[in-house]
């Protein structure tokens, strides 16, 4: 279980998170939605410790995420970054097997490569891709490689940052289906941030809407359409009129 309690974060005068409270049950898929600049990525990065929160508490399975052994903590996580964040200087298979080639999860090189090729196959990429460099791949393929890297060490918790941004609708659908399948099959806890409503419906068990630095609404995805929350309604229907200012 991931718990955020009254989490605050500001960058200078810009208060991005103003007291976020959120619970993500173990083995469930939580999708956080919200407009651009609403602090979704910051919330995710606070959990991972990439951005230290100014105040509040972040607990993972009841333990404070900011204390204890960082390596052991991060070894439980996998993350798919918005742009893939693949390492340009390494071939695809070494990107996927990065964690398996060094540190506490280190495996023999051949075994790490085998696992990488298997994970690539799992996300629909052929073994030929393994020896290419990220710059030789299309955007959709890079996303898949990023996904393969996120699941390579079979983490308990996986974060997806805008998994379908920049992809055509068909490729976005493929990525959504893959995420859903992988999360279900691995039994992992997933946190996804997106403003793509198709992704939300495909990936989420639960949805949380972040607006003005706080969680405005949270609940099961099935209740999203009948929430009665004017902010959520405006957002999911993409209306210009409503409590959320169109010009920000």
């Amino acid at each position: 279980m991931i718990t955020l309690r009254d989490v605050h974060k500001a960058f200078g005068a810009n208060k991005v998170l103003r007291g976020v409270d959120l619970e993500v049950p173990r083995g469930s898929s939580m999708v956080i939605i919200g407009g651009s600049g609403s602090g979704k990525s910051v919330a995710l990065k606070c959990v991972l410790g990439l951005v230290p929160p100014d105040a509040g508490q972040i607990l993972v399975d009841g333990k404070d995420a900011t204390r204890g052994d960082r390596d052991a903590f991060l070894a439980r996580f996998g993350m798919l970054f918005q742009g893939g964040a693949l390492f340009d200087s390494l071939p695809v298979w070494q990107n996927v097997a990065f964690r398996l080639l060094r540190g506490s999860l280190k495996r023999p090189r051949d075994e790490a490569r085998e696992i990488a090729v298997e994970k690539l196959r799992r996300v629909g990429l052929s073994p030929d891709v393994a020896d290419l460099f990220p710059s030789e791949l299309s955007g959709g393929m890079q996303k898949r490689v990023g996904l393969a890297r996120a699941i390579a060490a079979e983490p308990e918790i996986i974060f997806f940052d805008e998994p379908t941004t920049g992809l055509d609708p068909i490729m976005a659908g493929v990525i959504n289906d893959l995420i859903r399948e992988i999360v279900t099959e691995m039994g992992a806890t997933a946190m996804t941030i997106t403003h793509d409503m198709t992704s939300v419906r495909a990936i989420a068990d639960n949805v949380a809407m972040l607006y003005d630095g706080v969680i405005k609404w949270t609940g099961p995805v099935a209740e999203m359409d009948n929430s009665g929350d004017p902010y959520l309604d405006q957002f999911i229907h993409g209306r210009a009129d409503g409590p959320i200012a169109a010009v920000r």
Binding site: L48, D71, F81, A85, G103
Partner: peptide, 17 residues
């Protein structure tokens, strides 16, 4: 700097490096 801009540095951290 390019690694930072493209979140590769953040990726390193999440990969326990």
């Amino acid at each position: 700097a390019t690694m930072k801009v493209t979140e590769q540095i953040d990726a390193l951290v999440t990969l326990s490096t």
